[in-house]
């Protein structure tokens, strides 16, 4: 049986801990693939100026490039170096929703994420992405503290 583990990265230390846990787990259960995903928080229902709209495509490319080179690629190469079959995905969208959708699309068996990185007012109002993921995920979720 092939087991694919999805690791949700967020560019912080908790994301790194999630990655370390995934490595550990993958070696124990002999997972076939590790997929490192970074979701850039974005909503199609925000308000922007005309100038921002005109430059949006350019900004999007820059955001993807930055997330790939700074967060996803280092994680994927670290995994490969450790002998795992690994690949990375960067996508814009609602973090919890997109992470779940990409997991289903890529036939992931489990999602591993770090604990909430949002704090204060935002967290109180909307909950964190981790909370939302745990509430709505289609596969089991492991939250690493």
């Amino acid at each position: 049986m092939t087991v694919k583990l999805v690791v949700g990265l967020d560019g912080t230390e908790t994301g790194d801990r999630a990655l370390a846990f995934a490595k550990d787990l993958a070696s124990k259960i002999d997972a076939s693939e590790l997929i490192a995903i970074y979701v850039i928080e974005w909503s199609p229902f925000t308000f922007q100026t005309a100038d921002e709209n005109a430059k949006r495509h350019l900004r999007r490319e820059e955001e993807i490039e930055l997330a790939t080179s700074r967060i996803v690629e280092p994680a994927v190469s670290a995994l490969r170096k450790a002998g795992f079959n690994a690949r990375g995905i960067v996508r814009h969208g609602d973090v919890a929703e997109t992470l779940d959708k990409l997991t289903v699309e890529n036939e992931g068996s489990q999602i591993i994420v770090g604990r909430a990185s949002a704090d204060g007012f935002t967290k109180r109002m909307f909950g964190s992405s981790t909370q939302n993921l745990v509430m709505h995920a289609s596969v089991p979720v492991t939250v690493v503290g």
Binding site: W42, P44, R60
Partner: peptide
């Protein structure tokens, strides 16, 4: 996702 949406325009 991440491009200018119809709503935004």
């Amino acid at each position: 996702a991440g491009e200018v949406s119809h709503f935004q325009a």
